[in-house]
Amino acid sequence: MTDNIVEIDNLSFGYKGRQLHKGINMAFPRGKVVAIMGGSGSGKTTLLRLIGGQLKPTRGEVRVGGKVVHHQDRDGLHTLRRKMGMLFQFGALFTDLSVYENVAFPMREHTDLPETMIRDLVMMKLNAVGLRGAAQLMPTELSGGMARRVALARAVALDPSIIMYDEPFAGLDPISMGVVCNLIRSLNDALGATSIVVTHDVHETFSFVDYVYFVGNGVVVAEGTPDELRNSDLPFVHQFVHGEADGPVPFHYPAPDYAAEMLRGHNV
């Protein structure tokens, strides 16, 4: 078969009567960094949750390593998840544990390693993100960028083969953004993992990913390497890449005719 570690096949998902995805097809080849881009509210984060099995698709399927995610039972799902690492939007560090314990958490939960080995591994992971010196701090004492890096160390604690990033650049200053970009690339290559990055920061993302999917209106509207997309003349991609206010993605939320609405007030 193909060498795609994650495949999304004709996936549809919706809740509370709102259809979020309408038949999405994506493939994530082993060893690559792939970005999923799209406007706010286009269901990018939901895609990650579908891959992680936290949500069930209404139609279609997600295959991880050839296994259909939503057909797995509890144990099967846990086995799949142990191969995945996920970086949440704001890190989602456990606030009652120190930085050290946060990174040690997955090791303590899933392995019976002796304390000395856990210590060596934690320090190694923290060193990789440059925060070995912050091991004894509490999450509340970290800046946003540092918290993101600790969360990254935690996500790769068990050397996963798939790493998912939910908006890794949200709310970061330019320096931290550059640091996180480099880390995503270098960790991916060092671990031989596959990375899925959900984001809407075009310029940072285009600088280091291998492939990009654009999502809009519940379908994949464009895909390709960063270079192909930069030169794309699809209106949506053009609008997104160049950050134009109006275009195929309208400025106005769907609303009744403005004039009609103004007049209606007088009839009440």
């Binding site: 086995t79 998840r81 704001f90 989602a92 456990f94 606030t95 939960e109 899933h110």
Partner: peptide, 25 residues
């Protein structure tokens, strides 16, 4: 408040994604 905040800051989700049941842990 503690559990609600853990949920709001996605700590429970993160735990779930690490194949750890938040209910058990």
């Amino acid at each position: 408040a503690e559990i609600g905040l853990m949920k709001a800051t996605e700590q429970l989700s993160a735990m779930e994604m690490m194949a750890v049941s938040p209910i058990a842990r």
